[in-house]
Simulated scan of single mutants.
Amino acid sequence: MALKVIGAGPGRTATFSTKFALEHIGYGPCYHMVEVFRNARRNIPLWQNVVDGKPDWDAIFDGYSSVTDNPACVYWRELAEFYPEAKVVLTVRDADAWVESCNDTINSPRMLSSLEGSDLLQMLQGTYLSQFGENIDDREWMANWYRAFNAEVIDTIPSNRLLVFHPKDGWEPLCDFLEVPVPSEPFPRVNSRDELGGASDEQGGLPADPEQLEAFAGGYIDELRRKAFA
Protein backbone atom coordinates (compact mmCIF):
# COMPACT_ATOMS: atom_id res chain seq x y z
CA MET A 1 0.00 0.00 0.00
CA ALA A 2 1.56 3.30 -1.09
CA LEU A 3 1.01 6.44 0.97
CA LYS A 4 -1.80 8.61 -0.36
CA VAL A 5 -1.43 11.52 2.09
CA ILE A 6 1.80 12.89 3.57
CA GLY A 7 1.46 15.12 6.61
CA ALA A 8 4.33 17.61 6.54
CA GLY A 9 3.45 19.51 9.72
CA PRO A 10 5.66 18.92 12.76
CA GLY A 11 4.32 17.49 15.99
CA ARG A 12 2.13 19.81 18.07
CA THR A 13 0.25 21.07 15.01
CA ALA A 14 -2.83 18.92 15.70
CA THR A 15 -1.21 15.94 14.01
CA PHE A 16 -3.06 13.47 16.23
CA SER A 17 -6.41 15.05 15.43
CA THR A 18 -5.46 14.96 11.76
CA LYS A 19 -4.50 11.29 12.07
CA PHE A 20 -7.97 10.42 13.35
CA ALA A 21 -9.60 12.68 10.74
CA LEU A 22 -7.75 11.03 7.87
CA GLU A 23 -8.66 7.59 9.16
CA HIS A 24 -12.30 8.63 9.47
CA ILE A 25 -12.55 9.75 5.84
CA GLY A 26 -10.92 6.66 4.37
CA TYR A 27 -7.19 7.38 4.53
CA GLY A 28 -6.31 4.98 7.28
CA PRO A 29 -4.51 3.54 8.94
CA CYS A 30 -2.53 6.74 9.47
CA TYR A 31 1.07 6.52 10.70
CA HIS A 32 2.09 8.86 13.56
CA MET A 33 4.85 8.97 16.14
CA VAL A 34 2.60 7.02 18.47
CA GLU A 35 2.61 4.21 15.91
CA VAL A 36 6.41 4.13 16.25
CA PHE A 37 5.88 3.70 19.98
CA ARG A 38 3.13 1.10 19.62
CA ASN A 39 5.44 -1.28 17.75
CA ALA A 40 8.73 0.11 19.03
CA ARG A 41 10.82 -3.05 18.75
CA ARG A 42 10.10 -3.21 15.02
CA ASN A 43 9.91 0.48 14.17
CA ILE A 44 12.79 2.09 16.03
CA PRO A 45 15.41 0.05 14.09
CA LEU A 46 13.68 0.98 10.82
CA TRP A 47 13.95 4.66 11.68
CA GLN A 48 17.54 4.21 12.79
CA ASN A 49 18.19 2.89 9.29
CA VAL A 50 16.80 6.17 7.98
CA VAL A 51 19.25 8.04 10.20
CA ASP A 52 22.04 5.86 8.84
CA GLY A 53 21.09 6.73 5.26
CA LYS A 54 19.34 3.44 4.46
CA PRO A 55 15.63 4.25 4.44
CA ASP A 56 13.10 1.57 3.51
CA TRP A 57 9.98 3.68 3.26
CA ASP A 58 7.77 0.84 2.04
CA ALA A 59 8.75 -1.24 5.07
CA ILE A 60 8.18 1.64 7.49
CA PHE A 61 4.74 2.47 6.10
CA ASP A 62 3.66 -1.07 5.27
CA GLY A 63 -0.11 -1.24 5.74
CA TYR A 64 -0.58 2.55 6.08
CA SER A 65 -2.18 4.90 3.57
CA SER A 66 -1.31 8.21 5.26
CA VAL A 67 1.16 9.70 7.72
CA THR A 68 1.37 12.67 10.06
CA ASP A 69 3.70 13.89 12.81
CA ASN A 70 7.34 13.18 13.70
CA PRO A 71 9.60 11.62 12.65
CA ALA A 72 8.11 11.24 9.17
CA CYS A 73 7.49 14.98 8.71
CA VAL A 74 11.26 15.55 8.93
CA TYR A 75 11.46 13.71 5.61
CA TRP A 76 8.53 15.36 3.86
CA ARG A 77 10.66 16.16 0.83
CA GLU A 78 11.95 12.59 0.44
CA LEU A 79 8.48 11.12 0.97
CA ALA A 80 6.88 13.48 -1.55
CA GLU A 81 9.45 12.32 -4.10
CA PHE A 82 9.17 8.63 -3.21
CA TYR A 83 5.35 8.69 -3.31
CA PRO A 84 4.72 11.08 -6.23
CA GLU A 85 0.97 10.43 -6.31
CA ALA A 86 0.49 11.33 -2.64
CA LYS A 87 -1.01 14.65 -1.64
CA VAL A 88 0.69 16.74 1.04
CA VAL A 89 -1.08 18.31 4.04
CA LEU A 90 0.83 20.94 6.00
CA THR A 91 -0.85 21.37 9.38
CA VAL A 92 -0.07 24.81 10.80
CA ARG A 93 -0.51 26.96 13.88
CA ASP A 94 0.88 30.17 15.36
CA ALA A 95 4.67 29.85 15.67
CA ASP A 96 4.95 31.09 19.25
CA ALA A 97 2.09 28.83 20.37
CA TRP A 98 3.84 25.90 18.66
CA VAL A 99 7.06 26.57 20.59
CA GLU A 100 5.21 26.84 23.89
CA SER A 101 3.32 23.60 23.26
CA CYS A 102 6.51 21.74 22.30
CA ASN A 103 8.31 23.02 25.38
CA ASP A 104 5.53 21.70 27.59
CA THR A 105 5.42 18.28 25.96
CA ILE A 106 7.66 16.64 23.35
CA ASN A 107 10.67 18.93 23.88
CA SER A 108 10.40 19.15 27.66
CA PRO A 109 13.34 18.09 29.83
CA ARG A 110 10.96 15.74 31.68
CA MET A 111 10.05 13.91 28.51
CA LEU A 112 13.54 13.74 27.00
CA SER A 113 15.37 12.88 30.22
CA SER A 114 13.07 9.90 30.77
CA LEU A 115 14.53 8.40 27.58
CA GLU A 116 18.19 8.90 28.46
CA GLY A 117 20.33 6.06 27.11
CA SER A 118 17.49 4.46 25.13
CA ASP A 119 17.34 3.46 21.48
CA LEU A 120 14.29 5.68 21.14
CA LEU A 121 16.20 8.79 22.20
CA GLN A 122 19.03 7.89 19.84
CA MET A 123 16.52 7.65 17.01
CA LEU A 124 14.88 10.94 17.97
CA GLN A 125 18.25 12.66 18.12
CA GLY A 126 19.01 11.47 14.61
CA THR A 127 15.64 12.50 13.16
CA TYR A 128 13.42 15.08 14.86
CA LEU A 129 15.86 16.63 17.33
CA SER A 130 18.69 16.92 14.80
CA GLN A 131 16.84 19.81 13.17
CA PHE A 132 17.40 22.06 16.16
CA GLY A 133 20.97 21.40 17.28
CA GLU A 134 21.68 23.32 20.48
CA ASN A 135 18.80 25.76 19.91
CA ILE A 136 15.91 23.77 21.33
CA ASP A 137 15.65 26.06 24.39
CA ASP A 138 15.85 29.28 22.35
CA ARG A 139 12.21 30.26 21.86
CA GLU A 140 12.88 32.91 19.24
CA TRP A 141 15.13 30.63 17.21
CA MET A 142 12.59 27.82 17.35
CA ALA A 143 9.74 30.09 16.25
CA ASN A 144 11.81 31.34 13.32
CA TRP A 145 12.77 27.76 12.45
CA TYR A 146 9.11 26.80 12.38
CA ARG A 147 8.15 29.70 10.13
CA ALA A 148 11.01 28.86 7.76
CA PHE A 149 10.03 25.17 7.74
CA ASN A 150 6.48 26.00 6.68
CA ALA A 151 7.70 28.44 4.03
CA GLU A 152 10.01 25.80 2.56
CA VAL A 153 7.20 23.27 2.25
CA ILE A 154 4.93 25.85 0.63
CA ASP A 155 7.64 26.97 -1.77
CA THR A 156 8.57 23.39 -2.73
CA ILE A 157 5.34 21.43 -3.13
CA PRO A 158 3.17 22.45 -6.12
CA SER A 159 0.03 24.24 -4.99
CA ASN A 160 -2.27 21.67 -6.60
CA ARG A 161 -0.65 18.97 -4.47
CA LEU A 162 -0.53 20.89 -1.17
CA LEU A 163 -3.10 21.83 1.46
CA VAL A 164 -2.03 24.31 4.13
CA PHE A 165 -4.43 23.27 6.84
CA HIS A 166 -5.37 24.61 10.26
CA PRO A 167 -7.52 21.92 11.90
CA LYS A 168 -9.68 24.58 13.54
CA ASP A 169 -11.12 25.06 10.03
CA GLY A 170 -12.74 21.65 10.31
CA TRP A 171 -13.61 19.06 7.71
CA GLU A 172 -14.39 21.20 4.66
CA PRO A 173 -10.92 22.18 3.40
CA LEU A 174 -9.49 18.72 4.06
CA CYS A 175 -12.38 16.88 2.44
CA ASP A 176 -12.46 19.24 -0.52
CA PHE A 177 -8.72 18.74 -1.05
CA LEU A 178 -9.03 14.95 -0.89
CA GLU A 179 -12.32 14.91 -2.80
CA VAL A 180 -14.32 12.98 -0.20
CA PRO A 181 -17.69 13.73 1.46
CA VAL A 182 -17.78 15.85 4.60
CA PRO A 183 -18.67 13.70 7.65
CA SER A 184 -21.57 14.62 9.88
CA GLU A 185 -19.47 14.20 13.02
CA PRO A 186 -17.51 17.14 14.47
CA PHE A 187 -13.85 17.30 13.49
CA PRO A 188 -11.81 15.33 16.07
CA ARG A 189 -9.87 17.40 18.59
CA VAL A 190 -7.54 15.36 20.77
CA ASN A 191 -4.03 15.24 22.22
CA SER A 192 -4.19 18.58 23.95
CA ARG A 193 -1.18 19.67 25.95
CA ASP A 194 -2.87 18.59 29.17
CA GLU A 195 -3.67 15.10 27.84
CA LEU A 196 -0.14 14.35 26.69
CA GLY A 197 1.45 15.95 29.73
CA GLY A 198 -0.86 14.10 32.09
CA ALA A 199 -0.28 10.76 30.44
CA SER A 200 3.48 11.09 30.60
CA ASP A 201 3.47 12.64 34.08
CA GLU A 202 1.89 9.50 35.48
CA GLN A 203 5.18 7.71 34.87
CA GLY A 204 7.65 10.60 34.87
CA GLY A 205 7.91 10.86 31.09
CA LEU A 206 7.81 8.21 28.38
CA PRO A 207 8.86 4.63 29.12
CA ALA A 208 12.39 3.98 27.85
CA ASP A 209 11.84 0.22 27.81
CA PRO A 210 10.44 -0.76 24.37
CA GLU A 211 7.92 -3.28 25.73
CA GLN A 212 6.57 -0.77 28.25
CA LEU A 213 6.53 1.93 25.57
CA GLU A 214 4.40 -0.29 23.33
CA ALA A 215 1.89 -0.87 26.13
CA PHE A 216 1.76 2.85 26.93
CA ALA A 217 1.21 3.81 23.30
CA GLY A 218 -1.53 1.26 22.74
CA GLY A 219 -3.46 2.50 25.74
CA TYR A 220 -2.91 6.14 24.81
CA ILE A 221 -4.20 5.64 21.25
CA ASP A 222 -7.28 3.82 22.53
CA GLU A 223 -8.00 6.57 25.07
CA LEU A 224 -7.72 9.36 22.51
CA ARG A 225 -9.72 7.47 19.90
CA ARG A 226 -12.59 7.23 22.39
CA LYS A 227 -12.43 11.01 22.87
CA ALA A 228 -11.98 11.86 19.21
CA PHE A 229 -15.64 11.81 18.24
CA ALA A 230 -17.25 11.87 21.68
Rank of each mutant, 00 (worst) to 15 (best):
L46Y: 01
G204F: 06
A86R: 02
A97Y: 04
V180Y: 06
A59Q: 15
V67L: 10
E116K: 11
T91S: 13
Q212K: 14
L90H: 01
T91D: 00
E202H: 07
P167I: 13
K168Q: 12
M111R: 11
D138S: 00
D56S: 11
Y220V: 04
D194C: 00
L90Q: 01
V50I: 02
E78I: 03
N70Y: 14
F16E: 07
I106Q: 04
E35L: 05
S113G: 00
G219A: 08
D52H: 10
F37R: 01
D138N: 15
G28I: 00
E214T: 09
Y220R: 09
E81R: 12
L120P: 08
N150L: 00
E179G: 11
P207E: 07
R41H: 08
A230Q: 13
T13Q: 04
E211R: 12
I154C: 09
L3V: 01
D94E: 14
D222Y: 03
A148S: 14
P183R: 06
L46F: 02
P71E: 08
E152M: 06
A228T: 11
V67H: 00
F187I: 07
A143Y: 05
L196S: 10
N107V: 05
C30S: 15
G197C: 02
V89K: 05
Y75H: 15
D62M: 04
D201W: 02
A230P: 12
Q131L: 12
A8Q: 00
W47P: 02
V74I: 14
L112N: 12
T105R: 01
N160Q: 14
L213S: 10
I221V: 15
M1T: 13
A208Q: 07
K168G: 08
W141F: 14
G204I: 03
G28K: 03
Y146P: 03
A21H: 09
L121H: 03
V50H: 01
L206N: 03
R189P: 00
W141K: 10
P71G: 02
R225I: 07
N49A: 15
Y83L: 05
E85A: 14
T68V: 15
N107C: 11
A215E: 12
D119G: 12
A199V: 08
P188G: 03
D52Y: 00
P45L: 01
G198I: 05
L124A: 11
C102M: 15
P55L: 07
R110V: 05
D62N: 13
W141Y: 15
F37S: 01
D222M: 08
K4N: 11
A199F: 01
V67M: 10
I60N: 04
F61E: 03
C175D: 08
K87R: 15
V67E: 09
C30H: 09
